[in-house]
């Protein structure tokens, strides 16, 4: 089906997130306003105004009432999804890069960038049931990885935190003690900074995308490397279909290195791979710039991509898609 072009952001997209019901799509961009859309027809529902910098990441609670956003303005904010009002602001000393609610939405993991001599950090906050009781302290602060930590997410039962970033290593931390449990192997792991990380719908495995032009599939509990997907472009965004054994990689040349000759030169395609056989199935073209964000609708029947070009493209699959055989 023809994709729906959603034009609402004025700057490159950074992150996309569906709520659990799959009826809402949240988008973050370098303009300062996260936006929520109807996931079915792409209609803009509202914006969340209050950030004063690029918004890098967001997460929405299971009941779709609470939104958390992380921004380069050195804050993470909690929002009322329905009203669009700010509920709380976490202040940091450096830009926040990624946010993720734990199971039960009572914990959030937030990563902060290295900034003005400060090292990067992974911080755990308790999320209060009632915003009035919300406190700003971190329950846990993890430090160690070199460079930016591009993504940190919760492991099963909130017992672990999985992080990945510029130092190419995927790490599993104990969320109770803050101890490092596992590290990905330097030989078999990514060879260049990891740009993105996305969990499967049940959280048992996750996929990472890297500038080394590959994406890798890992076991969440054991950090076993399961699969590697090779592509021809640096990977900026990854996601997995909750319905079929498909993974989607998005990326393209760095915006600064994009050729001006031919839009195909950048390969700004969302590439579909067979999750098990690691073979390319197809691609979805359309963006004029690298793809920075990808998200699959939890029903597996549509997906959204966000590009450096400032557009969100919403793709509902044709019936043929569900009959692909390779």
């Amino acid at each position: 089906m023809r994709p729906i072009l959603m034009k609402g952001h004025e700057r490159p997209l950074t992150f996309l997130k569906y709520n659990r019901d799959g009826d809402l799509l949240f988008s973050c961009a370098k303009d300062h306003t996260p936006t929520v859309w109807f996931a079915d027809n792409g209609e803009r529902l509202g914006t969340y105004r209050g950030h004063n910098g690029a918004v890098w990441c967001c997460d929405v609670s299971r009941d779709s009432s609470l939104l958390i956003t992380g921004s380069a303005d050195q804050t993470a904010k909690l929002w009322d999804v329905k009203k669009g009002t700010q509920l709380y602001t976490f202040n940091f000393d450096s830009p926040t890069r990624s946010v993720d609610f734990g199971v039960g939405d009572k914990l959030a993991v937030i990563t902060t960038d290295p900034f003005m001599g400060l090292p990067s950090a992974i911080q755990v906050k308790r999320i209060a049931r009632d915003p009035i009781d919300q406190a700003g302290e971190s329950v846990l602060v993890l430090k160690g990885p070199q460079g930016r930590i591009n993504r940190a997410v919760w492991g099963p039962l909130n017992k672990t935190i999985i992080s990945a970033g510029e130092d190419k290593v995927v790490r599993i931390w104990d969320s109770e003690t803050g101890k490092l449990i596992k590290e990905s192997d330097k030989e078999t792991g990514h060879q260049k900074p990891i740009t993105s990380l996305s969990k499967s719908i049940d959280g048992t495995h996750f996929i990472t995308g890297s500038l080394d032009k590959s994406a890798k599939l890992w076991d969440t509990r054991t950090l076993t490397l399961l699969k590697t997907y090779m592509t021809e472009r640096p990977v900026n965004a990854v996601t997995m279909s909750p319905l079929l054994d498909h993974v989607v990689l998005g990326g393209g040349q760095d915006a600064s290195a994009v050729t001006t000759t031919d839009h195909r030169a950048g390969k700004f395609e969302a590439k579909f791979y067979d999750k098990i056989l690691q073979e390319e199935i197809g691609g979805v073209k359309g963006h004029f710039g690298p793809i920075n964000a990808l998200a699959f609708n939890p029903d597996g029947r549509s997906f959204a991509s966000g590009g450096e070009d400032g557009y969100v493209r919403l793709h509902h699959f044709d019936p043929d898609y569900f009959n692909i055989k390779i």
Partner: peptide, 14 residues
Amino acid sequence: LQEEEKLERQKLRD
């Protein structure tokens, strides 16, 4: 594993 953790998860989700 998911099955084993089912109850615990349920607890986390109130």
